[in-house]
């Protein structure tokens, strides 16, 4: 063996040693994070599935395989009725919240992006609800929408709309509009309850700042040359917005759409404070149903199964968005 080869193998050995030390060090650095995430995120996810296989009210009972899932989905009429109604309420809630949230935020962000005096003041105000805790904000909102003491009914009263019960109103809004106009609206077209609409209004208000913030960032990324070139081609304001701003903002819109939808699917605190799932269960979303099953009825096994199902719904939605919608997003 030549001297050079010995030196080489020594270097290789020392590299290996260094590699081992580096590996050990890296795992030492990661250990705290892995330990806590493992104990409170990963293991519980496994336990959620485990618990959902048991009859488990106050204490762990008999193993029943997938029966909890079957009960929720079709086997037990009370449970399955509650589940599907809640899922449909959740989807309705998302449908009447997310599009409005995005549209309003888009308009405000677009206007706010212009060179204007006092822009920072506007921005500070718009972000306020977003930093306020949901419990406090919803407590105040309940009072703002109070049928007698709140300003909303007073304002509506001045245009001739009186006596709305907001968070206590189980009637669908289309039905209410129909009744006011003297048109009979069939039950299937009754629409979301006024209470759910109230919750949606809260949600839009609460998260408006967040969406504006993201859109402002996106607007800042659009190269101005595009606008100038288009203007030379004689494009008008609307065309500029429609053909340049909107497409180039699509990553942000897509992002806000995803985050907002997941946020709505998981919403709990605002509904708990404003309606607690009532009236007549018209605002009982899946998260509320899960909470009541678990905390009010003490049905831990069934609650866990609902948690797993909700996770699957969210996962499916996310995958769908990234597979189908994600492709259509233009990354400029």
């Amino acid at each position: 063996m030549s001297g050079g080869a010995i030196a080489q193998s020594e270097r290789a050995a020392s590299r290996r040693r260094r590699g081992l030390i580096e590996n050990a060090q890296a795992y030492l650095f990661l250990l705290p994070a892995i330990a806590f995430l493992g104990l409170f995120k990963i293991l519980p996810a496994v336990y959620a599935v485990y618990i959902s296989f048991f009859r488990w009210d106050v204490v762990q009972g008999a193993f029943r395989g997938l029966d909890n899932y079957f009960d929720i989905l079709w086997q037990n009429s009370t449970r399955s009725q509650a589940w599907w109604q809640s899922l449909s309420t959740t989807v309705t809630y998302a449908l009447i919240t997310v599009p409005f949230e995005i549209a309003i935020a888009l308009v405000v962000a677009y206007v706010l992006f212009q060179k204007l005096r006092g822009r920072d003041i506007y921005r500070t105000i718009y972000y306020l609800p977003y930093v306020t805790s949901t419990v406090a904000a919803a407590t105040v909102f309940f009072y703002v929408f109070h049928p007698q003491y709140g300003i909303v009914n007073q304002l509506l009263g001045s245009i001739g709309i009186t006596g709305l019960k907001w968070f206590q109103e189980p009637d669908g809004i289309f039905q209410m509009i129909g009744n006011a106009l003297g048109v009979a609206v069939p039950d299937w077209a009754a629409g979301p309850s006024l209470a759910l609409v109230g919750v949606a209004i809260f949600s839009i208000w609460h998260f408006l700042g967040f969406q504006i913030l993201i859109f402002l960032g996106g607007l800042g990324n659009i190269p101005l040359e595009y606008y100038e070139a288009a203007k030379l081609d004689g494009a008008n304001q609307w065309q500029l917005f429609r053909r340049i701003t909107l497409p180039l903002l699509s990553p942000q819109i897509f992002f806000v759409f995803t985050i907002a939808t997941i946020g709505v699917l998981r919403a709990f605190n605002e509904i708990f404070i404003l309606t607690n799932g009532g009236p007549l269960d018209t605002t009982r979303t899946v998260t509320l149903l899960l909470f009541k099953t678990f905390f009010q009825q003490g049905q831990i096994g069934l609650g866990s199964a609902m948690g797993v199902l909700l996770t699957l719904v969210i996962l499916a939605f996310t995958l769908f968005q990234f597979r189908i919608l994600g492709r259509r997003v233009e990354y400029g």
């Binding site: 405000v108 677009y110 206007v111 060179k115 506007y122 993201i214 960032g217 800042g220 990324n221 942000q252």
Partner: peptide, 26 residues
């Protein structure tokens, strides 16, 4: 996500409407 928020915004985007109108909206 954009990283642009820290940069100064470039307010030369095409102008829409009158300043008064915009303030009214805001």
């Amino acid at each position: 996500l954009p990283r642009a928020i820290a940069r100064p915004l470039r307010p030369r985007i095409p102008r829409i409407g009158s300043t008064v109108f915009k303030h009214l909206v805001l």
